[in-house]
Design a protein around this nucleic acid. Structure first.
Lengths: 80, 80
DNA sequence: TTGTGACTTGTAGTCCGTA
DNA sequence: ATACGGACTACAAGTCACA
């Protein structure tokens, strides 16, 4: 059997990737556009796009802004 | 009874403060100095000190470095 | 061992476009 | 509505001397 045949994979997924996936997922659930989310969070639209594509290394303060805009706790954006 | 007499307080504590408290707490549990933690995480001692004092707005990538050095998942550093 | 202010460098974050 | 690029400006990263 391969290394990831059963149970959890050992391969560490980056915090940046986790955050990106969670933001996209939550934003879709709330039926918000990148622009609408950016507005709610007080950030720029292109920045949100960059975060979702993992090209930017976002800071805690802005993680918190996104979390509030999405109606979740900051730590939930980093949860697997 | 006062507003916070029982149950969870409503007052929102900043993600930065949460992170700082968790880093200090976990570092103490592991009996590491700021210097030792900084070394493990590949960061500078004073940078860790600043994060613990909440004077720095740390990024996800560095949250991840600290988490790995402390042996926890990144999201655990933001948990209340 | 930790706290803090100051400083330089790299990049986060904004804004303008184009597709 | 989103991706992507270029050109900015603001601020995080990283280091140091000293309390």
């Amino acid at each position: 059997m391969g290394p990831a045949a059963s149970g959890q994979s050992k391969k560490r997924v980056s915090a940046r990737a986790l955050l990106a996936a969670n933001v996209v997922s939550l934003r879709r659930t709330r039926e918000l556009s990148q622009e609408a989310l950016a507005f709610e969070a007080g950030l720029h639209r292109t920045f949100v796009a960059h975060v979702e594509r993992q090209v930017r290394n976002i800071s805690v303060d802005n993680i918190e802004k996104l979390a509030i805009a999405l109606g979740v706790e900051p730590y939930e954006l980093l949860k697997p």
